[in-house]
Amino acid sequence: MTPELVPLLILCALVTYLARAVPFFLDWMKRLPRGIRRFLSIIPIAALGALIFPGVFMEFTFFPPLGLIGIAAAAAAAWFAGGLIIPIGGSILVVYLTLLLFF
């Protein structure tokens, strides 16, 4: 284990567990105000956008558009085939082939 990472691992475990466990022990959480519930239900979608951008441009520093090629492949596979395995596998394959052919 890396000693400097121990506080991070503990904090991540703790905040994840808190979000999952607190509602089991606080009954009023069953009836959160409507505005807050709307907000919480949108968060996963908003998070996806920020998780993808701008990170995807910074992944392949030697040729940033390669990231866009990869997620375009994933999006197409997810749209037509669905699931996670085919889009992820297909995306890796497209990026790998692009690397082999052009770099």
Partner: peptide, 13 residues
């Protein structure tokens, strides 16, 4: 390295 973004993109789609 594309895995993570492929996963998020699939979830988004």
């Amino acid at each position: 390295g594309i895995t993570l973004y492929a996963m998020f993109t699939s979830l988004l789609i």
